[in-house]
Nucleic acid binder design. Structure first.
Length: 646
RNA sequence: GCCGGUGUAGCUCAGGGGUAGAGCGUUUCCUUGGUAAGGAAGAGGUCAUGGGUUCAAUUCCCAUCAUUGGCUCCA
């Protein structure tokens, strides 16, 4: 007998050789039916794996992430089987489960797969799934494994196996299909009831663009048809929140092929929205001791040679601007920091004057790869809510934490609760990507990690995500489709102060090197507004929204009263407009609801005679009759309750 | 930049080798109304751009541009 500890702490005895399904059966038949994956002593196992020693066992159904992973990983095997049946010469590479589904990277040689083929792949997968094939793991010697794939001329699997240790190599068989596999499957293929191939895309072998490009086939599968339908509906819903669609509908921004790709045009409503966001941050920054500065959009090439940007990005960037004077070259600024360093260099500083905090809504231009451009989230010209703090090494910790507070304040004011704090460090390998000494890097990395810890941030560490001059603390927020975007960022930099020879005079009457913090709570106005649009589905907080109130006269007779109400609201700094169209009230209400204007004021005979307004709240309905003063204070209260002071 | 998809009216989209359609919006007229679409008539398109094939191209082919799903990249 062996003792199995279950997640609730209970210990049960079983004969040696039981498997996860047997254990599930001992709990309930229903659980046994739904168990699709298991973990034994923190190791993922097959549900059929025989257990021969004491240990703790966790059972997973499709409802748990671990269950989904096994389900989708197993589905990837079936996908590979289906692809192989259509393209016998295909070379399989890797096929993992991902957050939403799975993919398989394959080398199709001269063949191609397009959307037209998805349907028959899905049908084939379901046909195989119905065969109720078990996933059977078996150990294979390194030699046999290599021979198996050398026979198939599959250099990819050979490369994978060469990096594995003999004795730890396993194959998985189901039906007549075999794949190199580490394990973690569902009991059999018949549990896969619904399959959707979602897209096909190019992907480089091992993620390196110097390697062959493979075809990546994405799919998702479910144990119930209904779940697939719901998933597809969810995707449709997410599309409605797409900032590109909302930006067009709400007339916030636009692009023009003539102006150029990745260069957004801000329309009146969008520009006003952006201005309000800027003012919001300026106010908080003023309290936090920042000083606004303004710098030009271009700078001499030499400036970026000094900063190191030219060596790093020069080739792949907007090329230098020439002037009639020979050898004179300017670059569009890709960053504000070099300019701010020169502002610091404008005069000598005593340690008593530090920290200096220079802030600027600085527009920068970066030649992003054409395939990387995406709505407002990835553009070629954008405005950073940038600031650079120059401080003594002693002040670094306090300053860094103060910036974290500011970022958290900004996020809270805009209801971004689901962000991830990411400590972005150097990659452990490719060190030529970075400038500066190891010593400085270590100091900077330690400073960031300590500050994040002390502030109680729930952070993750990502290697290889640092900027080339220093590590970062990034605040990541997801868009409607679950893609992560970096918004706020704080970076510690010991390098640029050296490159620009920044100094201050210390208490010892000696010159010292200041430390620099780069920070942008929004990240960029463009990306921030994009993610904000997707989060709110266009229903911005009242203080931010372009039009707060729309006045709906019941007929043309009440137009004059409507104008009067409008002026009263405008006098109280409320953004309002009158719907003076020749339409019925029902129609005006519908349009205002669709346009997501937070408050509708219906005015007719009754309101005119009483000097009141009839208030309707978007998405909620009739609130009753208010005097204008009372309505104004309703608005003020709502704004004050969402927008705390910094 | 690479691998796919897409580009038709202001917007969303249908169509298809013989130079075009719907809904919404817009304009005009009727209607003057009370909490999610009142009625009628009209205007509006070099079918992204440039080549090619064809008696004939918006439709097929190629290129370019833009856009889009990924990959790579992201100061």
């Amino acid at each position: 007998m062996i003792q199995i500890t279950l997640p609730d702490g209970s210990i049960k005895e079983f004969p040696k050789g039981v498997n996860a399904i047997d254990v599930a059966k001992s709990i309930s038949e229903g659980l046994a039916r739904n168990v699709i994956s298991a973990k034994f002593n923190e190791k993922t196992i097959e549900t059929s794996t025989t257990l021969t020693e004491n240990g703790s066992l966790t059972l997973y159904t499709f409802n748990e992430p671990e269950g989904k992973k096994a389900f989708w990983h197993s589905s990837a095997h079936v996908l590979a089987q289906a692809i192989t049946s259509f393209y016998p010469n295909v070379k399989l590479t890797i096929g993992p489960a991902i957050d939403n589904g799975f993919y398989y990277d394959v080398d199709l040689g001269d063949d191609t797969i397009s959307e037209k083929d998805f349907n028959e792949i899905e049908n084939k997968m379901l046909e195989f799934a119905r065969g109720k094939f078990e996933f059977l793991m078996r150990e294979v010697s390194k030699k046999d494994a290599l021979d198996f794939y050398k026979n198939q001329n599959n250099q990819y699997k050979v490369e994978l196996i060469e990096n594995l240790t003999d004795g730890e190599i396993t194959f998985c068989d189901h039906s007549d299909f075999t794949d190199l596999c580490r394990g973690g499957h569902i009991p059999n293929t018949s549990i896969i009831k619904a399959v959707k191939i979602t897209s096909a895309a190019g992907a480089y072998w091992r993620g390196d663009e110097k390697n062959n490009q493979l075809t990546r086939i994405y799919g998702i599968s479910f144990p119930k048809q209904k779940m697939l339908t719901e998933y597809l509906e969810l995707l449709e819903e997410a599309k409605k929140r797409d900032h590109r669609k909302l930006g067009k509908e709400l007339e916030l921004f636009a692009f023009s092929a003539k102006v150029g790709q990745g260069l957004p045009l801000w329309l009146p409503k969008g520009a006003a929205l952006r201005e309000r966001l800027e003012n919001f941050l300026k106010k908080a920054q003023k309290k936090a001791g920042y000083e606004m500065v303004i710098t030009p959009h271009i700078g001499q090439k030499e400036l970026y040679v000094t900063s190191g940007h030219y060596a790093k990005y020069g080739e792949d960037s907007f090329q230098p601007i020439k002037t009639p004077k020979e050898d004179e070259e300017f670059l569009l600024k890709p960053m504000n920091c070099p300019h701010h360093c020169e502002i610091y260099n404008n005069k000598p500083y005593s340690y008593k004057e530090l920290p200096k905090r220079f802030a600027e809504f600085g527009t920068v231009y970066r030649y992003e790869q054409s395939g990387e451009l995406h709505g407002l989230t990835r553009v070629r010209g954008f405005t950073q809510d940038d600031a650079h703090i120059f401080c003594t090494p002693d002040q670094l910790d306090t300053e860094f934490k103060a910036v974290i507070d500011l970022v958290l304040y900004v996020f809270k004011s805009l209801s971004f609760e689901n962000f991830t704090a990411q400590v972005s460090l150097r990659s452990k390998e490719k060190s030529d990507k970075y400038i500066g000494s190891d010593e400085n890097w270590e100091k900077a990395e330690t400073a960031i990690i300590n500050a994040a810890k002390e502030k109680g941030l729930d952070y993750v560490i990502e290697y290889g995500e640092a900027a080339f001059y220093g590590p970062k603390l990034d605040f990541m927020v997801k868009d409607a489709l679950g893609r992560s975007w970096q918004l706020g960022t704080i970076q510690v930099d010991y390098n640029l102060p050296e490159r620009f020879d920044l100094q201050y005079k210390g208490a010892d009457n000696q010159l010292h090197r200041p430390v620099m913090i780069h920070r942008a709570p929004f990240g960029s106005m463009e990306r921030f507004i994009a993610v904000l649009l997707e989060h709110t589905a266009g229903k911005f907080p009242l203080w931010l929204t372009p039009e707060q109130v729309i006045i709906l006269p019941i007929s043309e007779k009440y137009q004059i009263y409507a104008e009067k109400v409008l002026h009263l609201l405008e006098n109280s700094e409320i953004r309002a407009l009158v719907d003076e169209r020749n339409e019925k009230t029902g129609r005006k209400i519908r349009d205002a609801e669709m346009n997501k204007i937070p408050f509708m004021l219906i005015v007719g005979e009754q309101e005119e005679s009483e000097g009141t307004v009839s208030v309707r709240k978007q998405g909620e309905g009739d609130l009753g009759t208010f005097t204008i003063e009372k309505f104004i204070s309703l608005i003020d209260n709502e704004i004050n309750s969402t927008l705390e002071k910094f």
